[in-house]
Amino acid sequence: MTVPWASEAPPQTQPIIGNDDVVRSRQHVRAFAQQCKLSLVDQTKFITAASELARNTLVYGGGGAMRAGLVERQGRRGVAAVFEDSGPGIPDIELALTDGWTSGGGLGLGLSGARRLVDEFFLDTEVDRGTTVTIVKWAR
């Protein structure tokens, strides 16, 4: 998936190596969500989705990075975030996206929940190569 980054500003990269980086990722995403004038509900949804994916990148992907920024398509503006790791990958995507399924001690709602919280959700994963999750939310 090629992300339609807005031309005026390049996306920002945030490494996700420790717990603090999950908080930092959330703060970057919040700034962009406010910048493209998402409603308060949509902001909260997008930030929460980013929080889930950042933590998965850290916990299951063994760390990685987030790229986030404004996007633009056919005159519409929005915010996007791409979470990338070169961890073990997800062997069974359908299972991972099942509500309540977790391989750790979580609620198993992060991935499936994040998908419901955003407008566009792309999951690209390969065993032993890594995982990339892209999310987009458009301003209304």
Binding site: L40, V41, Q43, T44, K45, D99, L109, G113, L117
Partner: peptide, 13 residues
């Protein structure tokens, strides 16, 4: 708050 309530519901918690 309302935005949190909506998010919690969408997450499935």
């Amino acid at each position: 708050r309302p935005q949190i309530a909506q998010t919690i519901v969408a997450l499935g918690i």
